Simulated scan of single mutants.
Amino acid sequence: MISVRNVLAGLGVAFTAYLAVRGLVWTEPVPSPLLMVITFAAYLVVTWLCIFFEPRPAPSHAPPEDEDVPLTAGPRGPVRLPMWAAVAALVCAVAVPTAVSIAVGPELRSATFATWYLGGIGALMVIVMVRRRPWIAWTGIAALAIGSIVWMGPVDALSLGLVGSAVWVAAAQLLLLSMDRAARDTARLAGLQRAASAWQASQSVRQRERRVQVQRALVVAGPVLMRAVATAGELDETERLQARVAEGRLRDEMRGPRLLDDAVRAELERARRRGATVTVLDEGGLEDVDPSALSIIRSQLADTLRAARSDRIYIRTSPHERVAVTVVGRSAAGAGLSDEDAVDLWREIPLPGAGEDE
């Protein structure tokens, strides 16, 4: 399967092999050719190990087999190089300059085939950097700098490739940081898009619920409104009562739809027909209540309204963690009492399973 990772791995293999093969193209005889070949082979083994070796991922985090793994941050990005492989790369950065310099002898240490390790170790440290071992990569560059300066002098080391290797590693680190930031921004944007889609969906659902509630209320209020228009507002007492009931029903459907079922609607209408003023407010707290618990709450509310005799009844949902709905009834004070209405009904309907407040 051709993927971004496979292409980059292939390029890494080809480039490091090219740099290493330069060390085998001898233009002059070397004192220790066997040491050169051994150094060349060890370098390729360590480099290709750093390119291809990956710890076996946990089954729950393994990506699908048919999905390309992009070079980005996170579990789908470059897998962190195991420490033992990173240490092997660091040992290679320390040993290769010394081994090559000893193998070619003092006279050939600045020859083209003897300086291949400047680019080779630089490429290896770039791989280590991409595999998310930055401290090992920079330590390897420092070891390369010390080894090359010791064996060929600072002028030759700097002019023959040491600066370029350090620049490669710095560029790899900057590129990796940029890709990590882009991946984080992409993930954050995807999360915001999901949140926006969820909010839009919830708003669409609420709009549909409001349309249904308005239509249901207009079924009751429509005839009264038509009658009021037809008579220019001249209604008899029965029609006025029906208008007040319809208005209350419309307010209930708009302000407290989660509290309503057929039984509660019937008790609210009965209370209004006997002359009581009823206010229903859903101020939150029931959004996460499941339908069965909501049915229990509505049943208790209907029972409370059925027994109520108050002149004014206030029904409100409660944000309390144990109380679902609070019902308060007030009636005109009798003789000997203050002029203010007295509270003659107080009921807190608990959330099912929470129990009554003590």
Rank of each mutant, 00 (worst) to 15 (best):
R5W: 02
V7N: 06
G12P: 06
Y18E: 08
V21G: 10
R22I: 10
L24H: 04
V25Y: 07
E28C: 02
I38D: 05
I38S: 10
T47S: 11
C50M: 02
F52L: 05
P55G: 06
R56A: 09
A58C: 03
E65I: 13
R76F: 10
R80V: 08
V87Y: 02
L90S: 01
V91E: 01
A95C: 11
A99Y: 02
P106S: 06
E107W: 12
E107D: 13
R109C: 09
W116M: 14
L124K: 00
M125E: 00
A137W: 02
T139W: 01
A143H: 01
A145P: 00
S148Y: 01
V150N: 10
V150K: 07
L160G: 05
S165T: 04
Q173F: 02
M179T: 07
A182V: 10
A195W: 08
V212N: 15
Q213F: 12
R216Q: 15
L218N: 15
P223D: 15
M226H: 14
T231S: 14
T231P: 02
E239G: 08
L250I: 12
M254F: 12
L260P: 00
D261M: 03
D262I: 13
R265M: 15
E269N: 10
R270T: 11
R274Q: 10
A276E: 02
A302F: 04
A302T: 13
T304G: 06
S310I: 00
R312F: 05
H320W: 06
E321M: 08
R322Y: 03
V323K: 05
E340H: 12
V343R: 15
G353K: 06
